[in-house]
């Protein structure tokens, strides 16, 4: 099963290897991983997406809890949560397709962040499904390169659940 795990860790060198090491030691692949500072500059937040046996993921989470540099860990998989990812996507933009690409970008609320003679570079934010759908639609035009941030996630504020967050 696919798991989205959120970790608060000490913002110092080597912590990421410790976290990643628990996966490599079990032969697990990490699908995506995102690390950045939180409001507290001494703390980083890691959002990690992986697929694997629930039992083993539970063991890995217990091991995270044992780590001196891990302050707090939460498996968001079963939680009501907001998940987003950003993608930068360079697509071939020929005479015939330029208008079509812009129309699609408009429907998906993607932004054009760079324009070349024969390419557009688009920026899109959304959940994984939206990003994948966007890529599928642009595929026939010729996607030349992508860069994805990987998922970032937060538990929903249950008091205001599902409000003010339409895509």
């Amino acid at each position: 099963m696919r798991h989205t795990i959120s970790l608060f860790v000490d913002n110092e060198s080597g912590v990421l290897s410790r976290v990643a090491g628990l996966f490599s030691a079990r032969g697990f692949n990490i699908e995506s991983l995102n690390v950045a500072e939180t409001l507290d500059p001494d703390t980083s937040r890691i959002t990690l997406v992986t697929t694997g046996d629930d039992f083993i993921i539970e063991q890995v989470i217990k091991r995270f809890n044992n780590m001196v540099n891990v302050i707090w860990v939460d498996d968001l998989t079963e939680e009501t949560r907001v998940e987003r990812e950003m993608i930068l996507l360079r697509v071939e933009a020929k005479e015939k397709t330029r208008a079509e690409i812009l129309r699609m970008a408009d429907i998906f609320r993607a932004k054009v962040v760079d324009v070349g003679l024969e390419t557009y570079t688009l920026e899109l934010t959304g959940d994984k499904e939206k990003v994948n759908a966007f890529m599928e639609l642009l595929e026939p035009m010729g996607i030349k390169e992508i860069a994805r941030t990987g998922t970032v996630a937060m538990k929903r504020d249950t008091k205001n659940s599902n409000t003010g967050d339409s895509q």
């Binding site: 060198s13 290897s17 410790r18 540099n69």
Partner: peptide, 14 residues
């Protein structure tokens, strides 16, 4: 040393 002993220590420091 830190990389080599990471999986076999409880914690390590540079």
């Amino acid at each position: 040393h830190i990389g080599i002993t990471r999986p076999c220590t409880k914690h390590n420091y540079l």
